[in-house]
């Protein structure tokens, strides 16, 4: 393409330069697919891993709590979440012992026979085992 340039003054020179700059701007160099792939691989490789970050912060948190042997044992046993489960199981066992459901009486009677005979103080204890 030939551009006719009748203007020898600096204004003509500016127009030519602006024209070249505008065309160069429109035709920006574009990265190859290979470069995009390399950059993506770098990004994934350098990307912080949130779970790893938690592990790395864990000792710092423990230190801030001023942990000793007992607190270390407490955390090793699972801390408060594990204690919650333990308390619930203990309470359930205690409740069953204090006030057993009627179905439990029936099942125990079927398995051991008459419970009153099993715990009788008049010699029924020995008899119960002899009966097998």
């Amino acid at each position: 393409m030939k551009n006719t340039d009748r203007d020898h003054a600096p204004g003509g020179q500016d127009r030519r330069l602006n024209d070249m700059l505008a065309r160069a701007r429109d035709e920006a160099p574009f990265p190859s697919a290979l470069l995009l792939d390399r950059v993506m691989q770098d990004a994934l490789q350098a990307m912080p891993d949130p779970s790893a970050a938690d592990v790395s912060r864990a000792p710092e948190t423990a230190d801030r709590r001023g942990g000793g042997i007992l607190s270390g044992l407490w955390r090793a046993l699972g801390g408060w979440p594990a204690a919650g489960g333990l308390v619930a199981a203990t309470a359930t066992g205690l409740w069953i012992g204090v006030s057993p459901p009627s179905v439990l009486d029936t099942q125990l009677a079927l398995y051991f026979g008459d419970a009153s005979g099993l715990f009788s103080l008049d010699g029924g204890y020995d008899l119960a085992f002899e009966d097998g």
Partner: peptide, 22 residues
């Protein structure tokens, strides 16, 4: 990305690489 989102890594790669390269 700093929170470990791989889609953010991809979006940033596609958005920024052409500008930086050019």
């Amino acid at each position: 990305y700093a929170g470990g989102d791989p889609m953010a890594a991809r979006a940033l790669t596609l958005r920024l690489t052409p500008r930086v390269f050019a």
